[in-house]
């Protein structure tokens, strides 16, 4: 057909489709803040991570789009499946990615939302962490098994302060949905100075959740050869790594929504600043041991979050 007819055709069909059904969910899921936006932000966060780390270490560092190049390269490589591994070896990274991609759809920047989606967020992030452990256990290597067991132990450790601080925020905002929490902050001011202890507790579990020093115990490269990642290669590793990078963006954004929300562009800026803070903390820290991290999260951070929960409830 003649090319100048296409725009007319598309415009007509968009109007028609828009009459028939609601386009907004598709945009939310696929574009903003869904798949496209999240992927771009994930690669941006990962690129920032490598560049800032390099510059602080007297190096030049790779270009900002390097994580994207790495992803494409990994897709072209051979993905070897160890003989002793099971079916979950392939499915763990896929489920991890799928679960962590659900969370941005619920963000209050044009996403879908429903009452109680904060609980969904907590559970879905846990699924992603458990898939890390499952991937480790299903690799058939003792290093993977050690990494998997460390991940489960650490999950058990930081769940407590995480859950308590999130519940404190939800009670303060009188709502268990992200949109509700954002709305409460727009009305009453950011939560980080109203719930400082919960904020500190939540920020302290972020390195554990996304795998950065001082709490990147499951992925310890030098000790257990990468833990759960040790046997992964090719497209499976690409998916797993991408899931991790999306987790960087998702968890930081969650922190911003829960404690630092004002509006959507300030959300982006605060996200970047918070990410810079965590990169900095990673650069100056060594990695602690499992028992030390357990004591830290259960005793110190758990009690801190509890203080704020009690304050808010009373």
């Amino acid at each position: 057909m003649f090319p100048y007819r296409w725009p007319v055709l598309i415009r007509v069909s968009a109007v028609r489709i828009g009459d028939l059904m609601d386009v907004q969910p598709f945009i939310s899921v696929l574009i903003v803040p869904g798949l496209l936006f999240t992927s771009v932000m994930a690669f941006l966060y990962a690129g920032m991570y490598r560049k800032v780390r390099a510059r602080m270490q007297n190096r030049r560092g790779p270009p900002f789009v390097q994580p994207f190049y790495d992803f494409i390269k990994l897709l072209s490589k051979d993905s070897i499946k160890p003989e002793k591994s099971g079916m979950l070896f392939t499915w763990a990274p896929i489920i991890a990615l799928a679960s962590v991609l659900i969370v941005p759809i619920l963000f209050p920047i044009g996403g879908l939302s429903f009452a109680g989606d904060l609980i969904v967020v907590i559970y879905v992030l846990n699924v992603s962490a458990i898939m890390l452990a499952v991937g480790g256990f299903s690799s058939g290597s003792p290093f993977g098994a050690v990494g998997g067991s460390r991940e489960v132990t650490q999950l058990f450790a930081y769940e407590l302060p995480l859950a308590i601080s999130m519940v404190a925020v939800a009670v303060k905002a009188s709502s268990f949905s992200l949109v509700g929490i954002a709305g409460a902050q727009e009305a009453g001011g950011m939560f980080f100075y109203q719930l400082p202890f919960a904020c500190i507790a939540f920020l302290s579990i972020i390195p554990a959740k996304i795998g950065l020093q001082p709490f990147d115990i499951p992925e310890a490269e030098q000790e257990i050869l990468g833990g759960p990642f040790v046997e992964y290669s090719g497209y499976r590793l690409a998916i797993f790594t991408f899931a991790n990078q999306v987790k960087y963006f998702v968890v930081i954004s969650l922190a911003v929504i829960l404690f630092f929300w004002r509006n959507w562009w300030q959300f982006l800026i605060t996200g970047f600043l918070l990410w810079l803070l965590f990169i900095f903390v990673k650069i100056i820290s060594a990695r602690v041991k499992t028992d030390q991290s357990f004591v830290f999260f259960w005793q110190y951070m758990g009690i801190l979050a509890l203080v704020d929960l009690v304050r808010v409830v009373i």
Partner: peptide, 16 residues
């Protein structure tokens, strides 16, 4: 030693 315990920044500085 710094690299093995996870603090690779110190590793880069010392080797420089």
């Amino acid at each position: 030693a710094a690299e093995i315990i996870g603090i690779e920044t110190l590793f880069m500085y010392i080797w420089k």
